[in-house]
């Protein structure tokens, strides 16, 4: 299951708003981006936050987003500008 994402995969951040400690920024939920780097596997922070061991480890990816689309043109950026966030596999869906 963890092999479904690769560098170059187009992904959507899950459009969900669960309670509890989360490391996926609110502004990215439901947004589309591109995986540009795979960092390996890391303990799940949503479990670590409650004193659990964070296992199983999750694949962590750097995902690139276009500023223009992410903010629907509302911000201070140039056409080429981008942003990235580091997202665990459980928050990603293939587009």
């Amino acid at each position: 299951m963890s092999d479904q994402f690769k560098v170059g995969s187009k992904v959507r951040i899950t459009n969900a708003y669960p309670p509890g400690h989360i490391r996926t920024p609110f502004f990215l939920r439901g947004k589309e981006g591109l995986i540009i780097r795979h960092f390996g596997k890391y303990p799940n922070p949503e479990r670590l936050a409650y004193g659990l061991n964070g296992l199983p480890k999750l694949n962590l990816y750097q995902v690139l987003f276009d500023m223009e689309t992410t903010w629907r043109g509302d911000g201070s950026f140039a056409a080429k500008d981008t942003l990235t966030a580091d997202i665990y596999e459980t928050w990603l869906e293939l587009v």
């Binding site: 400690h21 490391r23 922070p45 670590l48 936050a49 409650y50 004193g51 964070g54």
Partner: peptide, 12 residues
């Protein structure tokens, strides 16, 4: 004693 994520969760 705790992970940095527990720290974050407590602050939040």
């Amino acid at each position: 004693f705790w992970a940095s994520d527990e720290n974050r969760r407590t602050i939040e």
